[in-house]
């Protein structure tokens, strides 16, 4: 398979209170076409910064990011972002929100409506087209947000801890749903999380980041086939083994991050 996304020596520094903070350093990573890659790391390690860079929402300090061989210079409709807090327009209905991305792409009115219905259907919300965000539960809102990002047909779906604000049952349901959508649409997905189980459950590969400054510590292959078909995958011994492997990789980083934090606060 070819590389869809390439991170080359990517680094990002911020100026905060007169000091220069290095958020990300020497990130080298390739994401294959059609792959489901999960990036996992301790909180504050720069995971979201990495996604912002890939989304073209902030500028690189060093290195470059290539999507289909072309460097990222700004936001684009070839990449769709799903945010943790949904980012739905509260004055638009579910359908109106999905059409929002299509408007940005310049799709005609009638086709917009048809596409929006189609993707509402895909995320299992047929019949909810005229609901406003405040009339939907958290899980439903995130389904709408996913539908919105899929509807304008980007090649790559970037997901920034999309299920972190949801309760456990809703989250488990959406995991299976997302895998189903991924298999059906064949999108390349880059998914960010701090949850180890979530990472193993979803990712074909899991990239583990170090605590600040964020670097790629290791990329773990998780070759579990037919995930949604496996009953109670989370109890599977193979699943447990991968979970433990990534837990071990992360433990040191989490400890280090905590000590850093304590040092700052004391």
């Amino acid at each position: 398979m070819t590389a869809k996304i390439v991170f080359e020596n990517v680094g990002k520094t911020f100026r905060a209170r007169g000091k220069t903070v290095t958020a990300l350093q020497d990130i080298n990573l390739e994401v294959r076409d059609g792959e489901f890659l999960v990036i996992v790391g301790p909180s504050g390690c720069g995971k979201s910064t990495l996604l912002d860079l890939l989304g073209g929402l902030s500028e690189l300090s060093s290195g470059r990011i290539l999507v289909d061989g072309r460097p990222v210079t700004g936001p684009g409709l070839d990449r769709g972002i799903v945010f943790q807090q949904y980012a739905l327009l509260p004055w638009r209905t579910a359908q109106g929100n999905i059409e929002f991305g299509l408007e940005a792409k310049g799709v005609g009115r009638r086709e917009r409506a048809a596409k929006a219905r189609e993707y509402l259907d895909l995320v299992g919300l047929a019949g909810f087209h005229d609901r406003y965000p405040h009339e939907l539960s958290g899980g439903m809102k995130q389904r709408v947000a996913i539908a919105r990002s899929l509807a304008f047909d980007p090649d790559v779906l970037l997901m920034d801890e999309p299920f972190a604000a949801l309760d456990a049952q809703t989250r488990d349901g959406l995991h299976d749903e997302l895998l189903r959508i991924w298999e059906k649409t064949g999108k390349t997905i880059v998914f960010i999380t701090h949850g180890i189980e979530e990472a193993v459950y979803l990712g074909q590969r899991v990239a583990v980041l170090t605590s600040r400054p964020g670097r790629i510590k290791e990329v773990v292959d998780v070759p579990i086939d037919a995930r949604p078909a496996t009953e109670d995958l989370r109890s599977d011994p193979e699943f447990t083994r991968y979970r433990h492997e990534i837990w071990t990789l992360l433990r040191d980083e989490v400890d280090r991050a905590r000590n850093e934090e304590l040092k700052v606060h004391v």
Partner: peptide, 27 residues
């Protein structure tokens, strides 16, 4: 700010960002 970020991620320019996000949000 998240709505603005999300609209920017869709490649909306300043004029359309204002028209489609900022103005309705301020009404």
């Amino acid at each position: 700010p998240l709505l603005i970020k999300s609209a920017r991620s869709l490649g909306l320019g300043p004029v359309r960002l204002f028209q489609k996000v900022v103005l309705p949000a301020a009404v």
